[in-house]
């Protein structure tokens, strides 16, 4: 019964999606105050892949995500999500901001945070009810921390907090996920759990874009990589573009991460 419902939901969604690429960035240029932080960046993300965005600090990785979601007005260029401007496609996108971007002392529970993922579909004024509670609970189960549902969020470990954020994105029930450093400062167990989760999303035909810091794990975790340093340095399948030349162009100097791994 449940299975059928899920199947139906999936079909409906696939129907609604033409064969458009999940993300198409063209000539994106973003300036903050007087300084360009992204310069003429163009690339496409094909359907159903795990994509890493890497680059040194200040390379514009987070800015890229925010410009894609229309939070920052680009100076030139644009990003299309499933062939449409983001405003018309935002229901297809799930977002995981950096864990450090919020105050974890906020008076609320893990379950409550996950329900926020449903606010977009609830629309204005309506409150989350029992159905939303159940959906949120399922998402917490998927990330393996259902037993902490009622915990105040400051009492969770860093890894658990990251899982809460991922569960919130799952609740958005999206096709394209934009995640900002989900592996930052998490324990080994959480890292494995997140990787499993991303792979499961991929197996369901979803597309996941991850701003990533740890170059050593890129070949293991991802299909494609976008190497960024304000300019687009390289972009494509990991085995083709994730090499020393491109990385040293982006990071400048020798890249010891690769030799080590």
């Amino acid at each position: 019964m449940r299975q059928v419902e899920m199947e139906e939901r999936k079909n409906r969604k696939l129907e609604a999606l033409p064969d458009e690429t999940p993300l198409e960035v063209s000539g994106l240029t973003v300036a903050y105050r007087d300084k360009p932080v992204l310069w003429d960046v163009s690339f496409e993300v094909p359907d159903g892949e795990l994509v890493a965005i890497v680059g040194p600090n200040g390379a514009g990785k987070t800015t890229l995500l925010k410009a894609v979601m229309g939070m920052i007005e680009p100076a030139a260029g644009r990003a299309l999500v499933y062939g449409k401007p983001f405003e018309k496609a935002r229901h297809l996108v799930g977002y995981v901001p950096q864990r450090g971007s919020v105050d974890w002392d906020f008076p609320t529970s893990a379950l409550d945070i996950v329900q926020m993922g449903l606010y977009g579909k609830l629309g204005w004024f309506r409150r989350p009810g029992r159905k939303e509670r159940e959906t949120a609970m399922e998402c917490l189960e998927k990330v393996g921390i259902a037993s902490f549902a009622d915990r105040q969020i400051s009492q969770l470990s860093g890894g658990q907090q990251q899982r809460v954020f991922l569960a919130r994105a799952l609740a958005q029930d999206a096709n394209l996920y934009l995640t900002d450093e989900p592996f930052a400062a998490v324990d080994y167990k959480t890292e494995r759990a997140i990787v499993e989760l991303l792979r499961e999303l991929k197996s369901q035909g979803k597309t996941v874009i991850v701003v990533h810091h740890d170059l050593g794990t890129v070949p293991e975790y991802f299909d494609r990589v976008v190497i960024l340093n304000k300019n687009l340095v390289a972009e494509g399948p990991v085995e083709k573009v994730f090499n020393k030349e491109n990385l040293s162009e982006a990071y400048g100097g020798n890249v010891s991460y690769l030799a080590g791994s």
């Binding site: 939070m71 919020v102 204005w124 989350p128």
Partner: peptide, 19 residues
């Protein structure tokens, strides 16, 4: 607007991403 003010106070970026 309780729900809206709550998400605005906790995570304005996420709120913006949902429109």
């Amino acid at each position: 607007l309780f729900k809206e003010f709550k998400i605005l106070s906790f995570d304005p970026e996420f709120a913006a991403s949902m429109g």
